[in-house]
Amino acid sequence: MSSDQELHPSVQEFKQFMKQHPLLIQEVKGGSKTLQELFEEWSVVGSEHEQWSQYIGSQSTESKQTEVDNKSKDSKTSKSASDTLGQIIGLVKRMNVDDLQQHLTQFSSVLANVQNVIQSFQKPSNHTNQNQQDHPFSFRRD
């Protein structure tokens, strides 16, 4: 059994896609993209999306490689911005809203407890403030 037969069908499709778009391989070798990033983009937009048309070509064509290198250098700032956006999108994808809500609730409870402890050490004349149930994120000035 060959290693290609053991791969998931989507990975096999992606390998074929990469063979049809050899300039993407140059992007990976140049360090401007990773295979994981390309696979995720390919999974989202598909292999027929227009963004892939610029990567169809021959690896041995030196002029195309130079053109890709020039584009890489010219768009360094836009790539850093898109990389940042990609990282943010990745974080949002991985974020579990239920876990975030649970952590915020625990944080709110901790703040309320800290405020109660601080109030217990304040002067007795401030007991009127202690009776008020303020939101845990509101801070009082005395």
Rank of each mutant, 00 (worst) to 15 (best):
Q5S: 12
Q5N: 10
H8E: 08
P9N: 03
K15G: 12
K15F: 08
Q16V: 11
F17R: 01
I25T: 04
S32H: 02
L35F: 09
Q36L: 10
E37P: 00
L38D: 01
F39H: 07
E40V: 02
E41H: 07
E41W: 04
V44A: 09
V45F: 11
G46V: 07
E48K: 10
S53Q: 13
S53D: 10
Q65D: 00
E67V: 02
N70R: 15
N70A: 12
K71I: 02
S75K: 02
K76S: 00
T77M: 15
S78V: 05
S80F: 03
A81W: 04
D83H: 10
T84I: 06
Q87R: 14
L91D: 12
D98Y: 10
D99V: 06
L100R: 10
L100Y: 10
L100P: 01
L100M: 10
Q106G: 05
F107R: 14
S109E: 14
L111W: 02
L111H: 04
N113A: 08
Q115I: 06
V117A: 15
Q119M: 12
S125G: 02
S125N: 07
N126H: 12
T128S: 14
N129E: 09
Q130N: 06
N131R: 12
N131I: 05
N131L: 10
D134Q: 13
D134R: 12
R141W: 01
